[in-house]
């Protein structure tokens, strides 16, 4: 396996190499990338690209784009401090398959790389996404009615880990004929902006209790709208009380064995994510 590492500082390359050495993973070649163009020559079908999310401009995203241009199947992972969690959306949108938290935990990095490789080599398991459109429509409807904002659907992918893409997430547990969860995860700035628009009062730029409450009400409305659209299908569910979790790089678990679908959206040019993990309850 070849790991191509893009980082503004050479210490990252050593850090990654040390992790794999300490975990006794063999047959890995490490190459430091200086520019996105190098990927064209260096990448082969056993390559993983790791992008350190420390560039102060768009260089990180350019590395992701270059890798995906070379071969769509090349897994790309982003290395990001928890403080930067809310900024990794552009990398995900460009095609990155996951985020590894910094400071690096050796287990986490090696496992993430293995999972990324596995997901691209495995035959794609077909995933039933017939229930996703009501959630997408509900999201559009809630944003346009409550905030006067048009949201654009960008990308849809599966995500197995529990790391949230945003700084604040609203979660609704779903139970009934089908069960699972739906989460909206937003960068801080967008969360403040939409709750400000909803209220018509300036809430500033910090994740205050008021902003968090607004995020809870957003997921409440998205879940409720989707619920009504799914009535009389095997994906119907009941909702309860939303909860809100914030903090850089926070994690929210989902039901194991049920595909967790991520829909990336953009509102006013800022990305955010909706995650839906839902499956009919098996009847005995």
């Amino acid at each position: 396996m070849k790991i191509l590492i893009a980082a503004p500082s050479s210490s990252t390359v050593n850090m990654v190499r040390n992790v794999f050495t300490s975990m006794k993973v063999q047959n890995v070649e490490f190459v430091a990338l200086d520019s996105p163009d190098e990927i064209e020559d260096l990448a082969d079908d056993k390559t993983v690209v790791i992008v350190d999310w420390e560039y102060t401009d768009d260089t990180g995203t350019e590395f992701v784009i270059a890798a995906k241009k070379k071969n769509k199947k090349i897994p790309v992972l982003l290395l990001a401090t928890k403080q930067k969690a809310g900024t990794t959306f552009s990398g995900m949108k460009a095609g990155a398959s996951g985020v590894v938290n910094k400071p690096i935990e050796p287990d986490d990095l090696v496992r993430s790389v293995a999972a990324a490789v596995k997901s691209t080599t495995e035959k794609k398991q077909s995933v039933n996404v017939e229930f996703i459109n009501p959630f997408i429509d509900a999201t559009r409807n809630v944003f346009s009615t409550m905030c006067g904002m048009d949201v654009v659907r960008k990308k849809l992918f599966l995500k197995d880990d529990y790391k949230m893409l945003g700084d604040v997430s609203g979660v609704m547990g779903l139970s009934g004929t089908a069960c699972g969860s739906v989460v909206v995860s937003l960068p801080k700035e967008l969360a403040c902006k939409i709750v400000t628009k909803m209220l018509g009062e300036d809430l500033g730029t910090e994740l205050s209790p008021d902003v968090c409450d607004g995020v809870g009400e957003i997921i409440n409305m998205i879940a409720g709208q989707a619920k009504a659209m799914l009535v009389k299908t095997k994906y119907h569910f009941t909702i309860s009380i939303p909860s809100v979790i914030s903090g850089h790089g926070h994690e929210i678990s989902h039901k194991k064995g049920t595909p967790n679908i991520v829909v990336l959206f953009e509102a006013d040019g800022t990305p955010f994510a909706l995650q839906v993990c839902l499956a009919p309850v098996e009847s005995e």
């Binding site: 409807n141 409550m146 409440n220 409305m221 409720g224 709208q225 619920k227 009504a228 009535v231 909702i239």
Partner: peptide, 25 residues
């Protein structure tokens, strides 16, 4: 409420609600 199903509206009206508004509004 965000509960937008007909069944909910009927239940509420039968229980004495005077009107029903669905979120988002």
């Amino acid at each position: 409420t965000t509960e937008a199903e007909k069944a909910n509206v009927i239940t509420a009206i039968k229980s004495g609600a005077n009107n029903y508004i669905v979120k988002p509004f």
